[in-house]
């Protein structure tokens, strides 16, 4: 496959439709990023050397709980999963109590705690609604509400290693496996 750089001519607008990483000017197609040329269904695009994260519906994001309301948990979104690159717009996301876990949840503070790191799926991009209902989503790092020590997962229970306090969370199977 051909490797191109920004400005390299790829063909004419009559030949292909311009896909990602390609732009059209005066009927000609040029690459806008460096990468490999991909042609599929008459659409020509360039698979870039480095991608810029963009949040779409269904994406998994990682963030920190910064506030707990009656029926909402507010999340400061840090990264899109799989990217080690800052997001273009780092807004707040919200997890509604109905989107926390598959079943009914009475009190949101039994699923999340302040400063927890969560893995969540994007349900609505416009309003940045998140959900941890899905498989694999939930808290991946939590701290003890009493002594702020990192909680450890022991037989499906989150235990504080210094004071022995046991806390309840919507725990993700990825708990403690994050890269810090």
């Amino acid at each position: 496959m051909k490797f191109v750089m920004p400005g390299d001519k790829l063909g004419y607008a009559e030949e292909y439709a311009a896909g990602k990483g390609v732009y059209e000017e005066n009927g000609e197609l040029f690459a806008s990023v460096a990468g490999k040329v991909v042609m599929r269904d008459r659409v020509i695009s360039v698979e870039p050397v480095k991608r810029i994260p963009e949040i779409k519906k269904g994406d998994v994001v990682v963030g920190r709980i910064i506030d707990l309301r009656n029926s909402l948990a507010l999340v400061e979104i840090a990264r899109k999963e799989g990217f080690d690159r800052e997001l273009m717009h780092t807004g707040l996301g919200a997890i509604h109590i109905s989107n926390v876990q598959p079943g009914y949840l009475k009190d949101i503070s039994t699923a999340f705690g302040y400063r927890d790191i969560v893995r969540a799926k994007v349900v609505d991009v416009e309003q940045m609604k998140l959900s941890t209902k899905e498989e694999g989503m939930g808290v991946i790092k939590a701290i003890c509400s009493i002594c702020k020590e990192g909680l450890v997962l022991e037989k499906n229970k989150l235990v504080c290693p210094s004071c022995g306090n046991v806390e309840k969370r919507r725990v993700s199977p990825e708990y403690g496996k994050g890269r810090w």
Partner: peptide, 11 residues
């Protein structure tokens, strides 16, 4: 800029 993958018209 090319290394960062930022779309550009040329170099």
């Amino acid at each position: 800029l090319v290394d960062a993958g930022i779309p550009m018209k040329g170099i």
